[in-house]
Design a protein around this nucleic acid. Structure first.
Lengths: 325, 325
DNA sequence: ATGTTTCGTGCAACCGGTTGCAGAACTTCC
DNA sequence: GGAAGTTCTGCAACCGGTTGCACGAAACAT
């Protein structure tokens, strides 16, 4: 069994409170005593029990990070950045995957609530109402969704969409399809709003679609039926699936149709043709979200929510080309 | 502030112990009382604090899952399977990424130890000695590494390597390179042992290499220098990188050189050419690992470690072909 | 009617820490 | 030499639950 504070206290001949202070308020204990306690603790392999500590202090020094799908390559860089950034501040991050299921998401948040000081919600699928209710029990930072009263990190995908469309227009495209994502997605709506406001193009919005390779594959027929010369997809996975689906039908990218994705995930960089895509600042988002969350945690009840918007940019690769004659 | 057990007790006019039993041993409390307590609890939004509960029961109902790199597409399917499987058994899984850093790995395990009932260690990079020390504080199940005295889930990559080599031999290849992985990797050693035992081929072992796309890219020159006609890579990421590196040098796959990967990750299925690969039973491994871990957790001190080996198989796609004339 | 079970609940100690308060020992100051 | 501070440590209550034990009431057996 692991050593407890009482074992250390007994072995070093002091009261438990002295041991406790040795770790949580060292300046309050005499240097000599402190060293003795530390030596004994080291010897016994004692490590303060964080869960027990949390019971009295109300601080677990853990953060929760909830994502819809770890297998979506968009998330891991964000997760890694958040974890690394949190570690620097002596916080640990627990990641949980909701499997795109709102009910699982809610359950996970409930469970995490008491075991973490705050939760990072990435592209949540829950309704605003539920999120607001859960928010009463634990501080949140929401990534890629706009929720009033909560700290938020947004990636400026509207700007990215404009860049992508400008690129396509410059190549001569006019009839363009937007392959949208899941129904509740803020990102998807944001892209659609931005795209509709672009003058001089004839936009067809197709969707909602599953934000996966399979979703893109399934959308290929609809894209061809729409009679467009270029497509902006909700994300790279869909773009890759779409290219696949088009190839099955003998349609070449970018020869006959141009495709732009969003996210700049690794598989998109490896695909043939390499995807032109809107790069998302995922690492920065992870770090920023942790910063905002720790700010909230530190401030307690008096916290004021903050909003950060991060820039996106276009990476031109091989999946876009001039409009066919 | 969230409601506590005392709030519920007071509001429903019973002692806290009755409330406690209502949740953790319902059969011990009168149906009428129970319903009243449940109603009040519902009303107050009370949820038992798992951390506090763990303090007395010694059971957190959480599991830890430690991986070297979430961004490696090999892991997410395993993680998702483990999470889903654990949820069925009323357990939650906390995932942590070590960033391939043994020191971070050790620190994470230490932190998790008190907050989970057991830890799933996937392809750990720590030394045996350290793992054994940490094992004294919390039950482990190790995936893809052989450690005596601990429950283990292995994927039979040796068999997979033999299948891959047999496939290459059948295509006429004799001079074959094995692109090995990280130095401490059990999988890598296992593959090498299996490959060396295959008769009738001339094997060149190259490595160790970083188990990433970049590692494969960097190995391209060495592969060409080795004068082989086929390569078995440690994993798909490396295989993809290698194909990339070969393309840069004007070498075609599979026309001039055949490449086999391991893992059957999604990017490998999407790459051009589509990768021939050894499929790993990642979902099964995740589920099995959770089962073994819960078995250990349930058994307490008396637990006997178990070893499960899961089969692998070869998927032939487009990156392998007959030896060039 | 009495003795024995069974059932339901309360009491209080406990899990492993933290922390406000009190007091002992030692300084410092006048 | 005594009052007033400092510095350090111990005491005990507390965080939010769980659980062995005791006890009263009701149900059952004789």
């Amino acid at each position: 069994m692991a050593a407890t504070i009482r074992d250390v206290a007994q072995a070093s001949g002091v009261h438990v409170s002295t041991v406790s202070r040795t770790f949580s308020a060292p300046h309050l204990v005499n240097a000599e005593t402190r060293n003795r306690v530390l030596a004994v603790a080291e010897d016994l392999g004692y490590r303060p029990n964080r869960a027990a500590r949390a019971l009295t202090t109300g601080r677990t020094h853990n953060l929760g990070l909830i994502v819809a799908d770890i297998a979506n390559p968009f998330f891991p860089p964000l997760i890694k950045a958040a974890q690394a950034h949190a570690r620097l501040r002596d916080y640990h991050v627990f990641v949980a995957d909701t499997d795109e299921d709102p009910q699982v998401e809610e359950e996970l948040i409930q469970t995490l609530t008491k075991q973490v000081d705050g939760v990072l919600l990435c592209s949540p699928r829950l309704s605003n109402r539920v999120i607001e209710r859960l928010h009463q029990d634990v501080p949140f930072v929401v990534v890629n969704r706009r929720l009033k009263g909560m700290s938020t990190v947004l990636m400026d995908v509207g700007h990215g969409a404009r860049l992508a469309l400008a690129h396509l227009v410059a190549l001569g495209h006019r009839r363009i399809a937007l392959l949208s994502g899941p129904a509740g997605s803020w990102t998807s709506r944001e892209m659609a709003d931005a795209a509709r406001a672009v003058p001089g193009i004839e936009l067809t919005v197709l969707g909602p679609n599953s934000p996966t390779e399979h979703g893109g594959l399934a959308a290929a027929a609809g894209v061809l039926a729409a009679g467009v010369t270029a497509v902006l997809a909700y994300n790279d996975l869909m773009a890759i699936g779409l290219v696949e689906g088009l190839a099955e039908r003998g349609v070449e990218v970018p020869g006959e149709l141009s495709v732009v994705g969003v996210d700049d995930i690794v598989p998109g960089r490896l695909a043939r043709p390499k995807l032109t895509t809107v790069a998302m600042p995922t690492e920065a988002a992870g770090r920023t979200a942790v910063d905002l969350l720790l700010q909230l945690v530190g401030a307690g009840e008096t916290a004021t929510p903050a909003l950060t918007t991060l820039a996106t940019h276009l990476i031109i690769r091989e999946s876009t080309g001039p409009v066919p004659p």
